[in-house]
């Protein structure tokens, strides 16, 4: 895909250019039994800078699989996913391992299961520091050879922290504070935090590299409603703070999607049933799956007045 084509897309939406473009995706999955095999086929899907795209669908519709493919962690059988940053187009599955790895700091992922979304054997702060250590962020302006020397010094130094480690720790603590965790909580083990706090820590880990895209796979489905509300409010604040970051959010709760989404994509048995601005999809869904979901959500919520 040429960069010039990417530029053509820009005028269509106000928030920003295309950040991620998936085309002709095909992914077949089967677990032995025929009845359980399913095929995910998506012709075209784009994520724009600054938008929240919600993938909605029943369980088994392939929404989580699509999310992992878009996030670059699940290789599709065919098709490509392009990341367009700074005028450079990079095919996530076509580029080599090194390139892929170098692009990872542009992606932040938050998963569903609160109990094992953080390593229970390590302090929260260590988990949050990981992405920084892996990508060696913040990029130091010292040359590579000095860097090696620095590392040796760090290795030899027993105990105390180097300047760099202090800096990284400060960044991690800053992000943790932003999501509502204090330094004292950062030094705990995940089991000593509540579910909501753990999920906040997982969000902090996703944000610590300042990614351009954040992927959330049902991040609140295991939480209580009141905790879910505070996490959703946090996500909205984060979205407003950084208006160019793109979010892809997977949920089966349309009302929740309504809270966050700019665009909603409805998936039905591995196909993209419809995609459009959130208001439109909710007001007049065009697909069967969309209509059914909206109807059920309405009926449930009407009872609450």
């Amino acid at each position: 895909m040429l960069p010039s084509e990417a530029m053509d897309e820009q005028p269509q939406n106000q928030s920003g250019g295309v950040l991620l473009r998936a085309s002709d995706l095909c992914f077949a999955y089967s677990s032995g039994a025929k009845s359980q095999s399913f095929e995910l086929i998506v012709d075209e899907l784009q994520v724009h800078a600054g938008e929240v795209l919600v993938l909605c669908g029943a369980s088994g519709s392939g929404k989580s699989t699509l999310l992992s493919i878009l996030a670059g962690t699940q290789r599709p059988d065919s098709g490509r996913v392009d990341l367009l940053t700074d005028g450079v187009t990079r095919d996530l599955y076509g580029c080599g391992r090194q390139q892929w790895k170098a692009s990872r700091h542009d992606f932040g992922l938050v998963y569903q299961d609160v109990r094992e979304s953080l390593n229970d054997r390590r302090r929260v702060i260590d988990s949050v520091l990981d992405p920084l250590l892996v990508h060696d962020l913040p990029k130091s302006n010292i040359g590579a050879c000095v860097n090696v020397w620095q590392r040796i010094v760090e290795l030899v130094r027993w105990g105390g922290e180097s300047e760099r480690q202090k800096k990284q720790r400060a960044i991690a603590l800053d992000v943790l504070r932003r999501v509502g965790l204090q330094a004292e909580q950062a030094d705990r083990f995940p089991k000593n935090l509540s579910g909501g706090q753990r999920q906040r820590a997982a969000i902090a880990r996703a944000l610590v590299t300042q990614p351009r895209l954040v992927f959330l796979d049902e991040p609140t489905s295991a939480l209580d409603v009141s905790v879910q509300a505070s996490v959703v409010s946090l996500l909205r604040e984060l979205h407003q703070e950084n208006p160019v970051r793109g979010y892809v959010f997977v949920t089966h709760d349309l009302a929740l999607a309504r809270q966050l989404a700019d665009r909603i994509a409805v998936l039905d048995r591995g196909r993209l049933a419809e995609i459009g601005p959130a208001d439109e999809v909710l007001r007049s869904p065009t697909s069967n799956a969309g209509r059914e979901m909206v109807a059920i959500a309405r009926r449930e919520l009407d009872a609450l007045g």
Partner: peptide, 26 residues
């Protein structure tokens, strides 16, 4: 199979890094 291993692979950690930080303590 846990999510935290998936997460560290997703942010680009190498196999060795994941093993050292996430798997080994277990």
């Amino acid at each position: 199979q846990t999510r935290f291993v998936a997460a560290s692979q997703a942010f680009g950690a190498s196999w060795w890094y994941t093993f050292r930080r996430d798997v080994f303590p277990h």
